Structure formats: C-alpha cells, structure tokens
Lab assay of single mutants.
Amino acid sequence: KNAAKIVNEALNQGITLFVSDNKLKYKTNRDSIPSELLEEWKQHKQELIDFLTQLES
C-alpha cells in the first residue's frame, strides 16, 4: 500500500493524519483506532511523514 491510499482509508474512517514536529499524528472523533490501522501506520511511518509533509508544503 502506498501513503496516499493509507491516508485516504484513514479519512474514510473519520481519521485525519498529519505531521507535527516531524512526528505522525492523528485527529479523530472516534473512541478508538483499530489496531490494524495503527500497525499499518507504524509500518509505513516514514513514507506517511514524507507524503504528508510534501502535501503541506
């Protein structure tokens, strides 16, 4: 999976991924984040940080 797909899947579940101080963060109104999503974010962390940083610049 690529970073764009992961970010879109998160958005579809009401979760916004973003970068703050070079760290991957998220915002959501959900009570909890599915563990498989958290695991996927960890596996692709640097790719996600790079992707989101490019989007914001």
Score class of each variant (00 low, 15 high):
I6M: 11
D31H: 11
L24H: 00
S32C: 12
L48W: 00
S35V: 14
K42I: 15
K5L: 14
D21N: 08
F18N: 03
N29T: 14
L37V: 05
E36M: 08
K1R: 12
L24D: 01
K23T: 14
N2L: 12
V7A: 04
K1M: 09
E40A: 08
Q13P: 00
I6C: 03
I33A: 03
Q13K: 10
H44A: 06
R30M: 14
E9G: 04
K5H: 13
I49S: 02
K23I: 12
S57P: 13
H44Y: 14
L17P: 01
L37A: 04
N12M: 15
V7K: 02
K23V: 12
L38I: 13
N12W: 08
S35P: 13
L17S: 01
K25A: 12
E36D: 11
K45P: 03
R30S: 07
L52R: 00
E39D: 10
K5Q: 15
F18G: 04
K27V: 11
L38H: 05
Q54W: 11
I6K: 01
Q13G: 04
D31R: 09
Y26I: 06
S20V: 15
I33K: 02
K25F: 15
K45H: 14
E40D: 10
L11W: 10
S20L: 13
E9K: 07
N29C: 14
S35A: 14
L38F: 08
S20I: 13
L24V: 05
L52F: 05
K42S: 14
I6T: 02
S35N: 12
N2C: 14
E36H: 12
K25D: 08
K1S: 11
D31L: 11
P34C: 04
G14M: 04
K1E: 08
Y26S: 03
H44I: 05
V7H: 05
L48P: 00
T16Y: 15
L52I: 06
A4G: 07
L17C: 03
N8K: 15
L11N: 07
S35Q: 14
A3N: 02
K27D: 06
E56W: 07
Y26W: 15
P34V: 03
N12A: 15
V7C: 05
K42A: 14
H44F: 11
I33Y: 03
L48Q: 00
Q43R: 13
N8Y: 14
T16F: 15
I15Q: 00
L55W: 10
S20R: 07
D50W: 11
V7N: 03
E47G: 05
I6Y: 03
S32V: 09
E47M: 14
S32N: 12
S20Q: 15
K23Y: 06
K5T: 15
K45T: 15
